[in-house]
Simulated assay, not measured.
Amino acid sequence: MIPVKVVLAVAGREYIEPLLNYVHGSEYARRLRITAFSQPEAFRQYMMETNGMKRPDIVVGEAAFLSLWTDREAADIPCLALHEGEEVSQYGQPLLKYQPLSELVGSILEMARQRSGSRQSVNSREGGIIVGMMAASGGLGKTTAALNMSKQLGNEGYSVFYLNLETVDSSSLFTGSGSSNSTEGGGLSRLLYDLKATESDGIPFSVASYCVHRPEIQADTFQPVYNRKELIDMTCGEAVQLIRTIAESGQYDVVIVDSESENGDRAQAVLEASHKLIWLLADDLMSMHKCGLWLDVLELTQPEGFEAMLSKTNFVVNRYMGTMINSLPRDFMDLNGALPYIPSWKQMQHRELLLSSPIYQREIRHLCRKLLNVESAAQSPAAWS
C-alpha cells in the first residue's frame, strides 16, 4: 500500500502531538506519512515549494492556515478544513476538528481514497528514485550517511525504503534487532524466495508486507539477514531484481541502497540499478588510492558503461574538517559535497546520537535536495513526521 502523504496545519501543538502519537502507535502507521505545522508562515513557505515527490496527497488544516495558501485551487490538492461549527467550505471540505481520532483519521484516508483514482501517484509510472551508497573500503561512514539521509527524507515527507546489502549489516547498531513480530511477512529471505518462485508470472509485490517500519530512520527496511550465505550467494542479476522490485512497487519515493564495500556482485548491482550514486571518500592517502584503483577496474572491465556511471555519481568526502589535504585520485573526478567530522561521535555511548547531529543533518539535507533537484528552503519548516 502506498502511504498517504498528509500535511497537517493547526495552531496548537496540543492538538498535533496526540494525533501523531495515535497514528504512530496504530494500524495507520504504515498508511500515513504526516508532516505537521503549528506556524502559519512555515506552512505557507512549505506549500509554495511543494512539487514532484514532495507534493502531499491531502492537506488538513485550520482556515487561518489554508487562507495563506494562495495557489490552493491551482495546486489541485484536496483539502479538509478543520472547524468547530464555523463556515469553512471556501477552503475545502469541512471536517469537524474535535472527534474520535479513529474517525478523524478515517475521514482523511477516505478523502485520499476518493482522489486516488483521479490523480496518478508520483511513483506509479517510473518508480522511486534509487540512491546507491558506495565506498572503496569499509569504515568510511557509509551506513551512517545512508541512515541519516533516510531520516532526513522521511522527516521531509518522502516515503523511504532503506536496503542494506552488506554481508555484515551494521545498520542494526542504529535500529536494533526488532521485535518478535517484525518478521511477520517473512523478511528479505522470503521475498527473495517469492521473487524466484514467481519470476515468470510477473506478479506485483506488496513490498511493505515483507518489511518493518523503523521510526528511528523514518523508513521501511528488512530485518538483518542472519543467514549471510543468502547474501554471499546473491548474483548481480538477483540483486538488481530485488532493488528494482522495491523501487517499482509504487510504495516508495526513494530507495536508499547501502552496498558492500568491495567490488563484487552486490556492489555491481548497485552501480547498475541506481539512478543516483553517492561515492564516499575520506581525506586520507589510502582511501583515495583504493578509490582510484576501483575506478580503474571499472573503466577497464566496463568501458561502455563507465561514462554513464560517472554521470550519475556524486563524490562526497566524509568527516570533512574544513580543508582537503589529499587530491582526488583521478583527474576526471569532481568533489560534489562534504559531510562534516563530528568529534563527539568518537566518545559517545548512545547510538541514537549518530542520527541527531544538527550540523551533520544540515549537510545531509543539502545533499538530499541536490540529489532530488529540490531548491533549498530559506527557512526549514517546523514539522513533525
Results as ranks from 00 to 15, higher is better:
Glu41Cys: 03
Gln218Gly: 05
Asn155Cys: 10
Thr323Cys: 00
Ala219Pro: 07
Ser150Glu: 06
Cys79Ser: 12
Val225His: 03
Leu242Ser: 11
Ile246Ser: 02
Tyr226Met: 02
Leu298Cys: 08
Ala81Pro: 05
Ser344Cys: 14
Ala135Met: 09
Leu355His: 08
Pro329Val: 10
Glu230Asn: 13
Ala219Thr: 14
Asp284Ala: 12
Leu188Asp: 12
Ser180Asp: 13
Glu73Trp: 09
Phe205Trp: 04
Ala377Ser: 15
Gly322Glu: 05
Ser26Glu: 12
Met321Arg: 14
Lys54Gln: 15
Met333Lys: 00
Ile325Asn: 13
Gln349Asp: 12
Asp194Ala: 02
Leu371Ile: 10
Asn314Glu: 09
Leu300Pro: 00
Asp57His: 11
Thr144Arg: 15
Leu295Val: 08
Met309Trp: 02
Met309Gly: 05
Trp384Ala: 07
Ala273His: 06
Leu293Ile: 10
Val6Arg: 06
Glu49Tyr: 13
Ile203Ala: 10
Tyr320Ala: 14
Ile203Trp: 05
Leu271Cys: 08
Leu82Trp: 13
Trp294Asn: 04
Val60Asp: 08
Tyr28Gly: 02
Leu310Ser: 01
Arg365Met: 10
Ser150Ala: 15
Val374Phe: 03
Tyr252Trp: 04
Leu281Gly: 10
Leu68Arg: 12
Met348His: 11
Leu310Tyr: 01
Arg190Gly: 04
Lys151Val: 12
Ser209Gln: 14
Glu110Tyr: 07
Asp71Cys: 11
Ser357Tyr: 13
Leu195Glu: 15
Leu277Tyr: 00
Pro3His: 06
Glu62Trp: 10
Tyr341His: 05
Glu230Ala: 14
Leu188Ser: 10
Glu86Val: 07
Gln251His: 04
Gly138Cys: 06
Gln39Ile: 10
Gly85Arg: 14
Gly25Pro: 07
Ile16Asn: 11
Cys291Val: 06
Ile2Trp: 00
Asn373Trp: 04
Leu109Thr: 03
Asn155Gly: 15
Asn326Leu: 05
Ser380Cys: 08
Met133Phe: 01
Ala75Gln: 11
His83Pro: 09
Gln39Leu: 13
Thr144Phe: 14
His366Cys: 11
Ser179Asp: 05
Ile2Ala: 01
Asp201Gly: 06
Glu184Lys: 12
Tyr341Cys: 00
Leu280Trp: 01
Thr301Gly: 07
Gly128Cys: 05
Pro303Cys: 07
Asp253Gln: 03
Leu191Val: 15
Leu300Gly: 04
Ile58Pro: 00
Gln120Ile: 08
Trp345Gly: 12
Trp69Val: 08
Leu95Asn: 11
Glu14Asn: 04
Ile217Met: 15
Pro329Cys: 04
Leu140Lys: 10
Lys312Arg: 13
Leu281His: 13
Asn155Asp: 14
Cys368Asn: 08
Ser177Gln: 09
Thr221Phe: 03
Glu166Tyr: 06
Asn318Ala: 06
